[in-house]
């Protein structure tokens, strides 16, 4: 591993991404911090297991996943472990076509939203956002989370989730269609919103 140059700095630079990943799973900043710390330490000690800079985050996340799994085992709380990582389901394969007619036109389709910026400032909006995000099928939620919440590149998400390029595009597109629709139905279309504003 002469040319991989895995320095402390390179590792430390990955800390924010790893922390977000851990936090989303563990929902506790101290636990997340510990898991990241252990991960970086383990990575540092086994730098030889690392196969090239391009896959650095994927490799680190692999280690981090083990640390998180260890945590759940230790605390015997598997029952409440989040389901981000379930990739065994064949979810939502046929349902994309609900959004479009066979002609390629929208079925219904995106309406104009009134003042989305204002929604960002409202606590109730975030509850609904969370519901919509949690309503994504597990595999899709995992891909969306890795890309938009953790902040991995699309290449890294593909490696991490074991997706082909084509599958990645389809999955992200469906996730956006679903989230959009959910937010529209539950928030932006909701006529009571005016009263809530008052």
């Amino acid at each position: 591993m002469a040319d991989t140059l895995l320095t402390e700095q390179t590792l430390a630079a990955q800390r924010p991404v790893l922390f977000r990943y851990a936090l989303l799973q563990l929902r506790d900043s101290e636990l997340a911090d510990d898991a990241v710390q252990e991960t970086l330490l383990a990575a540092w000690q086994s730098a030889a297991g690392f196969e090239g800079k391009a896959g650095l985050r994927t490799w680190l996340i692999g280690i981090l996943k083990h640390k998180i799994a260890d945590h759940w085992r230790r605390s015997a709380r598997e029952a409440v472990a989040p389901t981000f990582d379930r990739t065994d389901e064949d979810d939502g394969e046929a349902e994309e076509d609900d959004y479009f007619a066979s002609s390629g036109h929208w079925n219904g389709g995106p309406k104009a939203w009134a003042d989305p910026e204002a929604a960002l400032k409202r606590q109730e909006f975030w509850l609904i956002y969370e519901v919509c995000q949690n309503n994504l099928p597990p595999k899709m939620a995992n891909v969306f989370m890795l890309r938009e919440l953790v902040g991995l590149d699309s290449d890294e998400v593909c490696r991490e989730a074991g997706l082909s390029d084509a599958n990645y595009w389809v999955t992200m597109h469906r996730a956006r269609l679903r989230l959009r629709e959910c937010l529209e139905i539950r928030w932006f279309n909701n006529t009571k919103q005016e009263q809530r504003h008052a």
């Binding site: 995106p110 960002l120 956002y129 995000q133 938009e148």
Partner: peptide
């Protein structure tokens, strides 16, 4: 509709970051 989809998917990205 596609214009709405465009602004809304950008909004969703922004919301996801804010959420995190």
């Amino acid at each position: 509709r596609c214009r709405n989809f465009q602004t809304q998917s950008q909004f969703i990205r922004k919301a996801a970051r804010r959420y995190t």
